[in-house]
Design a binder for these strands. Structure first.
Lengths: 218, 218
DNA sequence: AATTTTATTTAGATTTATCTAACTTTATTA
DNA sequence: TAATAAAGTTAGATAAATCTAAATAAAATT
């Protein structure tokens, strides 16, 4: 069994290696986990000893199969809980992340099995992220960042790659929520911001925001 | 904020002082929490420093108002989760204790508020134990142990004072579940076991078991 | 009351996860 | 490529929760 802390490290490594598809650096982990690089190094040694990561001094880490399976299971629990909070307890999508961060560490495979069943074996969470099944499998639809849409191209918002409450609240405000259809008008060369048509209203959003919104083109 | 461990100590002290209405001894806590008396003493000093308990060396402890409020809140969370597991996720009453032991430590007042609302502000959990409300209030109906019923007296099973799976499974087996009406036939003087009428069938159960079944007389 | 038993506490050690400060390795750039 | 900057590691320390073994206090018994 992994400790609460070990689970968090594995989860963070998993998320960071998803973004770069390569190895994960010590400082990146320290940043995400809000700790010191020295603490990360200590933990890397421990996780390597437990065969959960491949660790080469000064070279960063990758997850082993075992480590990846553990991480995916935590992600599965996190996303099932988020969906439960929104669907059953009527939380808003920007309120669930922190609570799920705690719930994901509750260790009862049967509980998660039952929760999955209760929710109808869902395929995605309230932010559009895929929910791995019991065996860790999930399909990641081919997604494109909103910032990469071509002029006149249309797409549906299916996910976000940033889960902070302030970001999600902002999306609610400008009506850029999951399932919304958006048409690209143009990318402003000067600052990379984008002019969009959101439900027939023309809006400009920053490059920063547009790069965290994931679309499926239609 | 209290740590996971501190919360467990407070909960155990609360439950033990309920039984004796007096102070709680070091060894009793050590026993319940499966740790050494020396560890309990260490923790008692810490909890006393935080004003959660009144601690006098060699004399045992009592909860302060603050400590009691904290303990009651944990009990509230535990019982709400147990009810959720049974009502919504279709667990059996003997399967929920261990899972609730973990869930009770998730710290989100809003989550518990919503869960309470979702469950319809219930007054008792699947074992018949009262669920404290948001302010820590609950009514403890005047209960009598099954072992104390007088011959020919009838009562309804409303709770149990033992939550082990083996005990609850046994109750299921002999059809002595919550809500069942039972009539006392006689107490066998020799071993204190009781002859009962349970749904028109005459059964004998041990003093030990009968003393853990709580009744409301009818 | 003296002795024995039981309950509790103290002292000092251990484990886990963290830290700071100093040092080493790798990467960048002038 | 030598110097500088950035990234990562090591060594030694700290806090939380636990332990064992020894000491002390309270309770029970002769």
């Amino acid at each position: 069994m992994e400790s609460y802390t070990e689970e968090n490290y594995l989860k963070v490594i998993y998320h960071l290696s998803n973004l770069t598809t390569g190895t994960v650096q010590t400082n990146a982990i320290a940043d995400k986990i809000q700790t010191r690089p020295a603490s990360v190094t200590d933990m890397m040694k421990k996780l390597a000893e437990k065969q959960l990561i491949n660790y080469i001094k000064y070279q960063g880490v990758t997850l082993t199969e075992k480590g990846k399976a553990t991480a995916v299971n935590i992600v599965r629990k996190h996303r099932l809980w988020e969906l439960f909070l929104v669907k059953t307890l009527h939380f808003k999508w920007d309120e669930v992340h922190e609570i799920a961060e705690e719930l994901e560490h509750v260790n009862s495979p049967l509980l998660i099995e039952r929760l999955d069943e209760y929710l109808g074996y869902p395929k995605s969470d309230p932010h559009g992220d895929p929910i791995p099944d019991k065996n860790g499998n999930f399909d990641s639809p081919a997604l494109i960042k909103l910032s990469k849409l071509k002029p006149a191209e249309k797409g549906i918002v299916v996910g976000v790659s940033e889960h902070s409450s302030s970001f999600l609240k902002y999306l609610d405000k400008i009506k850029l929520t999951l399932g919304t259809t958006v048409e690209m008008i143009e990318v402003i060369e000067f600052d990379g911001s984008v002019d969009l048509l959101i439900e027939d209203i023309r809006k400009n959003i920053s490059r920063e925001v547009a790069s965290h919104i994931l679309m499926r083109t239609t």
